[in-house]
Amino acid sequence: MPWHNSAGASAPREGNMVAKKVAYCGMLVALAMIFSYVEALIPFNFGVPGIKLGLANLVVLAGLYRMKAGEVLLVSVARILLIGFLFGNGMSILYSLAGGLLSFCVMLLLKKAGGFSIIGVSMAGGVCHNIGQILVAALVLRSVGIFYYLPVLIIAGIVTGALMGMITGRVQKALP
């Protein structure tokens, strides 16, 4: 079943559709939270802080291609806040939000612009996630010294973004 039916086509009542949507969003938030948690379990150190696989981006990316933008945004922000409150702190929420929102906006723009495959969209998302985080870090440190990491983080964003894009592409084909 597609994640958003054209209203009323197969559902008898409006309320039914809303309930379905809420259930889907809740399920995706849970899935994204599991991904965040699994990612935290993977020891991963390149000598540069901030490099992550970005597993939770799988959910956001797949969502962009199947749901309304507003719903995806809701899922992404809910995931960040919940994971932040559970395992992080105020600052880690700020970093994640900056990265998550910037990457969401850019991915949405590229997808709307057309001509990019899911891999390209994901790549830009991965890079922008890192850029968003480093901008907040630069504000916190009140120093530009941290931009020293930017080239490495851009490359890391390209690699992990492309990887997540490929996986989401495969998942997309398998989903109904």
Binding site: L110, G115, F116, S117, I119, G120, M123, A124, V127, I154, G157, I158
Partner: peptide
């Protein structure tokens, strides 16, 4: 990967 993807990759 489409053409625009490669352009994006090159820019990045």
């Amino acid at each position: 990967m489409k053409k625009k993807d490669w352009i994006l990759l090159a820019c990045l």
